[in-house]
Write a protein that binds this DNA or RNA. Structure first.
Length: 378
DNA sequence: CAAGGAGACTCAGAAAACTTTGC
DNA sequence: GGCAAAGTTTTCTGAGTCTCCTT
């Protein structure tokens, strides 16, 4: 603190050596190709990053307390006399319900043509008064962050639908859907509703609350560890779908699926054979009615049951793999799910934490592992 | 005094590196 | 018990969000 600022080592062209406790980086420079900033920052396992992460989830938990009021308010604003407020209210509805990103404006041409909520254009949505037996369906199709496609058909509340029709009236496909709205305006409003509230907090909040609810709904205390872990993965997957976290289909997918399918086919055959055996044993027992034949029948039945169970397990595995082939679970696990929810779940159901988090993740979430008991509620 | 840009930080999936599994 | 393939973890660095300061 009181020590003298050291001189930059000779033979280098450092700009400066500085003391600055308002930032968290250790070194920075401007990258010379694109003129962007580069930083050396601390590891996620560091105290500094851990505390920041904790804070983030605490803000999301505060949102939980006021989200009902906020929802009531944006519903009222759907009928506002000010068009700008209506746009804000509809956009916020999307951000809340669909976990869309804020959608800052970005420089045209220089960067990929991707959008978020506030930067949606007319061409990115289609309205269907009626679709697949649902009313007021909005069909989204646009490229989001990292040019990942967002495609979704959602039934929305009638006032939202009416408003969207209004916003689209007399506009070209390339016009902004929310032409009166900016992320700055939206975030200023959110800040006013709750200290520290911004658009992205909704993503964190909805992701975490979804995990908690799904875990509650899916976990069967009777299941073994593998069964419970499957439930956990499904809860995690629900969140990844909500946040649209995708991945390209793994190169090994087709092959490993094929191998699995072979296993399934082989198992099916075994089951069929076992069924034959049972039938045979049944006939024999009917004929002879002796104890030996009965015992044999029971044995065959038992075998059949075991094989059927194994088949069912393989089928689940295949379904799981199939469902997961385009979905990336890592991003939500690392960035959106309050780790205390997972820690509490592990403690409650006696699942070792290392089945959920690997070594690096346990280091990153050390604060949560320390803090959360089995009855932690997000 | 609002608009806009600089700056700082979080979040994203792909690819490389490493570990485990199944033969 | 060794080796290839499959699966997992780590690394990489670009793409977003949002704050704050300048104009």
């Amino acid at each position: 603190r009181d020590s003298k600022i050291p001189e930059p080592p000779e033979g280098h062209r450092w700009k400066e050596v500085r003391f600055d406790n308002t930032v968290t980086w250790l070194a920075s420079w401007t990258e010379n190709i694109q003129n962007t900033w580069k930083y050396i920052m601390l590891n996620p396992s560091s105290k500094l990053k851990g505390e920041k992460d904790w804070q983030k989830y605490e803000v999301a938990r505060r949102l939980k307390g006021v989200v009902h009021t906020i929802r009531a308010q944006y519903r009222r604003d759907w009928k506002s006399k000010e068009l700008k407020k209506r746009q804000r209210a509809v956009a916020l509805y999307f951000i809340d319900k669909l976990a869309l990103r804020a959608g800052n404006e970005k420089e045209e041409g220089e960067t990929a043509d991707t959008v978020g909520c506030c930067s949606l254009r007319v061409e990115h949505i289609q309205l269907h008064a009626q679709l697949d037996g649902q009313e007021h369906v909005v069909e989204f199709d646009f490229l989001g962050k990292d040019s990942i496609r967002y495609y979704n058909k959602v039934s929305v509340e009638k006032p939202v639908f009416k408003n969207l029709q209004l916003f689209m009236k007399n506009k070209d496909p390339t016009d902004d859907l929310f032409d009166l709205l900016t992320t700055a305006f939206l975030n200023k409003h959110l800040q006013h509703l709750m200290d520290g509230l911004t658009a992205k907090v909704f993503r964190t909040y909805n992701a975490s609350i979804t995990l908690q609810e799904q875990l509650k709904a899916l976990t069967n205390p009777e299941d073994d560890v593998a069964g419970k872990l499957l439930s956990y993965n499904r809860a995690n997957r629900a969140v990844a779908i909500l946040c649209n976290h995708q991945r390209s289909i793994p190169k090994t997918y087709a092959r490993s699926m094929q191998v699995l399918q072979q296993k399934i086919d082989a198992k099916k055959k075994q089951v069929e054979e076992a069924q034959e055996e049972v039938k045979k044993a049944e006939d024999e027992f009917k004929d002879t009615e002796d104890a030996k034949a009965e015992a044999n029948l029971e044995k065959k039945k038992k075998l059949l049951k075991r094989l059927e169970e194994q088949l069912a397990k393989l089928n689940i595995q295949a379904t799981d793999k199939e469902e997961n082939k385009q979905i990336a679970l890592g991003t939500s696990k690392l960035n959106y799910l309050d780790p205390r929810i997972s820690v509490a779940w592990c403690k409650k159901f006696g699942i070792p934490i290392e089945r959920i988090y690997n070594k690096t993740q346990r280091e990153k979430f050390a604060w949560a592992i320390d803090m959360a008991g089995e009855d932690f509620e997000f």
